[in-house]
Simulated scan of single mutants.
Amino acid sequence: MSTDQATHVGAGSADARHLELDPRPAEVLAIGSQLAYGSVGLNAALPVYEASGLRCAAVPTTILSVLPHYPSMHRADLPADWLWEVLHDLDRSGALDQLRAISVGYLALREHAAVVAEWCSSRTGSAVDAPFVLDPTLGDVGVGFYNDPNVAPALRRWLLPMATGLTLNLFELALLTDRPLSSLTRLKDVTAAAQCLMTHKTQWIVVTGLRSTTLSVGGSSLGRIGELVLTHDTVQILSRTVAPATPAGVGDTFTASLISRLLAGDDLLPAVDAAAGHTALQICRKERFT
């Protein structure tokens, strides 16, 4: 977009906030994928934030027509310079004046990670001033990569050092710690791998989707699924009955719900438990539609 195109509509306007149906500044900035039809990425997260009463600014890194599983799908990855300009537009508009959390999910290009890190630094002078939750949406067990494998090292370099919290599955944990997925079958190995991702900035890590064999620590966990919740001082496990299906978008729903609960004032463990319960409820709701 040329300068003339970018400034024409707003030329002479000191404050366009009066034109907004909802003029509240955003409390959450969510960066991720967007679909014309589907319930993953930003499509899955935005209803959660809205239901929690949180105003959210949503910035896509890629736009898809539908999920890649359909017979026909088209996508457009947004360029890194577009992402940079959009983030600065939001800052200049005042939309982020009351920002309380930043959530980063699917990044289509490795350059996106550098843009997010540099933008955060440019707006604060150093580290990000709002809690920064990284949901490294790279792939999953049984599915493989969702995106370019080169995104993983970019996340390690640019975004892991600044993350306040991480939500990730076993596939993503293996990638970010450079471990074989086959080595993460025991709880102690998952814990050790997650601890390797802790930095001075990190306050917590949640490893999701742990199945029965991984959860087992002496008692029966058959038919259970759960989360490893790690802080600098504690290691805790939460679990529940396995839901009847695993649709796409559950990770995005979980992360948005977790952030919503934390912003509502919940402590970490109750927030994780509530987010997992909400996600399970949405899966059961999905079953009622089919």
Rank of each mutant, 00 (worst) to 15 (best):
A95M: 00
A95C: 00
A95R: 00
L96N: 01
L96A: 03
D97I: 00
D97C: 00
Q98P: 00
L99E: 01
L99Y: 01
R100D: 07
R100N: 04
A101E: 04
I102G: 00
S103W: 00
S103C: 01
G105D: 02
G105N: 05
G105T: 01
Y106I: 04
Y106Q: 04
L107G: 06
A108T: 07
L109A: 07
L109Y: 04
R110N: 10
R110S: 14
E111P: 06
E111T: 09
H112L: 03
H112M: 04
A113W: 05
A113E: 05
A113H: 07
A114F: 03
V115K: 03
V116Y: 06
V116E: 05
A117Y: 11
E118A: 14
W119L: 01
W119R: 06
W119A: 01
W119P: 03
W119F: 06
C120L: 15
S121K: 12
S121L: 09
S121A: 14
S121C: 10
S122Y: 09
S122T: 12
G125V: 13
G125D: 13
G125L: 11
G125E: 12
S126K: 14
S126Q: 14
S126T: 13
A127R: 15
A127E: 13
A127W: 15
V128I: 15
V128T: 15
V128H: 12
D129S: 15
A130P: 05
P131K: 08
P131H: 09
V133T: 10
L134I: 08
L134W: 10
L134T: 10
D135M: 08
D135R: 09
P136A: 05
P136E: 03
T137P: 07
T137N: 15
G139H: 04
G139R: 01
G139E: 03
D140M: 04
D140Q: 10
D140A: 07
V141C: 08
G142D: 10
